[in-house]
Nucleic acid binder design. Structure first.
Lengths: 359, 359
DNA sequence: CTGAAAGCGCTTACAG
DNA sequence: CTGAAAGCGCTTACAG
């Protein structure tokens, strides 16, 4: 903790008061250009480093923003984090990062720490099981909050995805491929986002008057391992579903993998759709059909929502932002080429997949 | 920026001085238990939040640590970040996160920002092309620095991997599978880590008196896209390599994917080895053989190295840490089952891979 | 065992 | 256009 020169040192070196130095550093137009240049020169030659902590203490404002993420093992949240950090850095803010790994206890600890660090605002993707009162409590601390991906009511700025629409779209796509028995993998009980996604799936099935057996709604962990379990369940069902809509790409990757282990291929033996369009979905074998809402876009909007909040004054307060991106379906090989008997001929032709070497 | 109660308010409420409050908050044994309890009760009922910024300013120490990462699109670095954040949080530090995306300019900006934020220490995985003088410069700021994954000389604490050993090990494994023509994908010019990895590969080939054609050392981006290009190159070579050692898992995933597109299977048509053992390597199709040094372990050691530096006093200064983990090879299907003609029979038997459904 | 005082490095009215 | 003064919320010798 060696401490370098302060504005006092610059003031002495430039022959002005520290008030003047402070104003120059803030690029105030009140200081004569000539004086300003003299001060800047002194700062440069002394190797001065601005102390944001001191400025925040005195000026009662902060330039750090807390980012609380529930699951960094999911690349989607990493993409979101990267986008947010980029936008905030560009706006002159530094990002305090914390990972909760879905632990509410860790989240509580982390939020206290961020409050002590005096963050100007918070972007949070809450851990599963977070108390509904938490957003209100955070706001009562006077810290603007933007929730990402996991909505918790209309009283807090929220940026997420229209999950119901997306999962209906995904299901519709599978129905168009000729599938009539479709499973949903990743139904976690009491978890709002899983409910939305399941409802989207169920509504599309209902719209086409297709029944949904209870066992087709599969409750597994939202990980590749969960996806693997789902596949094993599906292949024990009689008659078994010929397609599966997965909670997210992590689950879908597990599904693709378990199929491969069984010597089967996604798209042929079982049509598979994921959600998030993580970068890796393009390079899975076979490539994964998935819903895309754009992590980069969502992160940008979340950041901008928070930045807008930070720059608004008490009397021009804007209404709460509730932004839900409309996903698109990116169709790749994992969902085409199989399907019911009468559909398989056409979809096989579409597949564009050829083995040029036997095995 | 609404400001809550301060130690002054607690002092008034508890009927003591703010010195006493401060000492109680620091759990000083100098304060009588009875008084301390009274103070804590007052703090609780006022909803007091400790102001770390003010404490850092006055006490000349800080509890934030900066983490500068070159590439978060690579899951390995995410695993590293998560481990580091966990250990630091446990030790009472908050992590300031910044992503440079391999841009030296961004890195410069980010380091200035972290210095202004008065970080107690820095953990950095430098961007490609970082000037050799940078670590020395950072240390001259009085900020302890730990370099991860990318060594830049012996004068700075460094935690990384013994790449030469690892890549020799990977190459040795392929030779044992009967391969004699082996390619190396991901040789970036002028990049120290790529040089180490290539040298490991070359040395193992030399040890077995196997020639290495120039064209087998393939210079591609260190991404899945680079891996795909490498495969296309390999299949144009005559005679072509039957195995490839990849710079990392990202490249290897691209290799697996391009092979699949060509209707070929890794392990049969081309043996593939990666490096990093990212979580996803377990779920690729086929599963990826890869070098593992343990992101979690490396992150833990890097954090502990920094924490040790932070707690040492001027006169018990320890020598520079140069820790290079010895990787192990995790053998999965991508590297077994193919190979030269006389080896293929045995390795096929070892493979444990069966297609139960034709395609 | 506790309190009064000085001060960390800044910013911001206010005065001139 | 510039400076003197007060103060942000803490900590830390020092005195008693």
């Amino acid at each position: 903790m060696k401490s370098g020169p302060t504005i006092q040192d610059i003031a002495a070196s430039a022959g002005v008061s520290k008030s003047t130095v402070s104003l120059v550093l803030q690029e105030s137009p009140r200081i004569k250009a000539e004086t300003a240049e003299k001060v800047r020169e002194a700062a440069r030659s002394l190797g001065y480093v601005y102390n944001r902590g001191a400025a925040a203490l005195r000026g009662r404002r902060s330039t750090t923003i807390g980012m609380v993420i529930n699951d960094l093992t999911n690349p989607f949240f990493v993409e979101l984090l990267v986008a947010i950090e980029r936008v905030l850095a560009h706006a002159g803010y530094t990002t305090l990062m914390a990972h909760t790994a879905e632990s509410v206890a860790t989240q509580t600890r982390v939020l206290r720490s961020m409050r002590e660090q005096n963050v100007a605002g918070l972007i949070m993707s809450p851990a599963l099981g977070t108390d509904d009162e938490l957003p209100g409590e955070i706001q009562s601390w006077g810290i603007p909050l933007v929730l990402v991906m996991r909505p918790m009511g209309v009283d807090v700025d929220t940026v997420g995805v229209d999950n119901g629409y997306g999962f209906a779209l995904a299901t519709q796509h599978l129905i168009e491929q000729g599938h009539t028995r479709i499973a949903f993998a990743g139904n976690r009980k009491g978890y709002a986002v899983a409910n939305q996604r399941r409802e989207g799936f169920v509504s599309a099935m209902a719209k086409h008057e297709l029944p949904v057996a209870d066992e087709w709604i599969i409750d597994v962990e939202l990980t590749p391992e969960g996806g693997r379990k789902a596949v094993r369940s599906i292949f024990e069902m009689k008659p078994r579903p010929t397609a599966v809509v997965c909670y997210n790409d992590q689950v879908a990757i597990g599904v693709l993998h378990e199929l491969d282990r069984m010597g089967k291929r996604a798209g042929k033996a079982l049509a598979v759709v994921g959600c998030d369009n993580v970068v890796a979905a393009e390079h899975t074998n076979p490539p994964l059909t998935t819903l895309s809402a754009g992590a980069d876009k969502l992160g940008t909007i979340a950041s901008e929502t928070l930045l807008a909040r930070l720059s608004e004054t008490a009397d021009d307060e804007k209404p709460t932002v509730q932004y839900f991106a409309v996903p698109v379906l990116v169709v790749r090989e994992s969902s085409v080429g199989g399907g019911s008997h009468h559909a398989s001929a056409t979809s096989k032709a579409r597949r564009g997949y050829e083995r040029t070497e036997g095995n």
